[in-house]
Design a protein around this nucleic acid. Sequence first.
DNA 1: CTGAAAGCGCTTACAG
DNA 2: CTGAAAGCGCTTACAG
Lengths: 330, 330
Amino acid sequence: MNLEHIAKLSGVSRSTVSRVINNEPSVTDTTRERVLEVIQRLNFQPNVVARSLAGGRTRVLGLVIPMGVARLFTDPYFPIFIQGVTSACNAHDHSMMLWLAEPEYERRMINQIVNAGLIDGVIISSSLIDDSLIDSLIGDNLPFVLIGRHPTNASINYVDVDNRESARQVVNHLLRKGRRRIATITGPQNMIAGLDRLEGYLIGLREWGLIPDPELIVDGSFSEEGSYLAVNRLLSRPIDAIFAASDTMAVGAIRAVREAGYRVPEDISVVGYDDIPLAAHTVPPLTTIRQPTQKMGALAVETLIDIIENPGLPPRRIILSTELVIRESD
Amino acid sequence: MNLEHIAKLSGVSRSTVSRVINNEPSVTDTTRERVLEVIQRLNFQPNVVARSLAGGRTRVLGLVIPMGVARLFTDPYFPIFIQGVTSACNAHDHSMMLWLAEPEYERRMINQIVNAGLIDGVIISSSLIDDSLIDSLIGDNLPFVLIGRHPTNASINYVDVDNRESARQVVNHLLRKGRRRIATITGPQNMIAGLDRLEGYLIGLREWGLIPDPELIVDGSFSEEGSYLAVNRLLSRPIDAIFAASDTMAVGAIRAVREAGYRVPEDISVVGYDDIPLAAHTVPPLTTIRQPTQKMGALAVETLIDIIENPGLPPRRIILSTELVIRESD
DNA sequence: CTGAAAGCGCTTACAG
DNA sequence: CTGAAAGCGCTTACAG
């Protein structure tokens, strides 16, 4: 079943059927109705592939998540984010193609993405700073939006949350609670979220005239286990609070703190970041930063479609605000 | 840049370039080398869309996960499974398209999947029993494989683990440890994994001549919270063990048990299913069934490609074995 | 072993 | 407002 088929049955040409399908205004209402009736009766679905080849647009969006990101395997952040992307794709009549970028295939994949013409644009989540994929995309003029701002290139479209501001707010909150020896478990420093959350922590301390102690800054790589190990090391020094750059790391931190015989929050406060579903159910329930994860996914899709349909406009740089959710870990 | 372009530069016809790209044997080595040299020099990538339209095959596979499955948001099972699918797609030069099936869009989506010609086949994960998508797929002759066996239709291809046998094994293990009042937290009974794990539990009890007590069977809907609530209800009766049909539910069970003042495993054993990464790190570490989640994803892809390339062969029904991992929750 | 040509199912100037 | 025709970039009989 194809356009020709529908055309014959409704007594018009293939061109007209195409126009009806694409909602072009230049069709009589009566003609339109006649054609639509046939389309519906036959439950006709135009062939996406042919449409793409002729029209130069596939209505398929790529979502790239670097696999190196170990988070993926344990952090509920991703499913929630992906859900936001998928819903928005559905709502805008697009499809989503997921790529988990494995290093071994990366080169071939970049090529596929950029040159094969399968997709109209790309969303890159949790990209590493200076990801070579970004350069490829720029070089080949394929529209893309980043989740997380780009530190240097101002012409790149992105959707992000205000990581620095919210981290600063966490530190501020802890300081107001009387904490003074605040440690932080950071994410990888080659990811913008890792970088910015650390910077916010530093800003927060300095605002209160405190000098950050490098020994209280340890890397947890956005993983539960990484954080657990980091906090074990940390506990040899006197600390009274921990800001973990993700809830998953906060969970690891709490585990380490309690195993060492300290109480949360009486001895050591623990604050996280993300507000994943689990955060409300840890013991004690986690104070954390709520970020609109699902909304970021949806906004990324909408921004990308906008860029595809309106090239040449100035870059969109969208920063969403967050919210400090105070529960019982302090 | 297209075939014509490459053809001109290497002094052959478009047809020959196509043959080289598709590795057809009927090309002289010298011709082949000449063409390949040009392709590599220009880093040429054939247009996937045109290829699909002409060849009738897109090399794109769809992965459908019903969103109703609340698990998705909290259960690490999915990222691991998706990772298996993606890797296998890469390895076999295919791409993967992810659909999270939202009820509201479902009808349109089925149409898209089945009729738009965008994909060569579909993998359905965690499908509900009697999912209407399955009927659509059968009706339209689109190749597909299920994760989880189909209870009635023997002609359907699937990859599954032996849920019944492994659940039976868990019960057997607990009975050998001297437990006699064994409760189970089940998954939804409209999912084959939920169904089969319950059945295995029943078989295990009966093997020892025990009569299952309906009051010890409660639904946890494959979620942490669902399980927590279910176990709260359960604790009014004297029980000495809980078999949770997923690790995520086991975590909820442990939480409820401990909050009620009982010890795990001294008072109540808790055994899970899945062996997610967290299972080794719960307090106490979880005894559970390890299933080859990633491998299931990869096998589903390979099976699907096989079906696409060799239609008409008898249905593949693949059952993978599992492993009881004994840790400290008993 | 290779090339010329038809065809995959659409879109889109162009002409009327 | 509508149709005939060219074209998107490939694959694949067919002929030689």
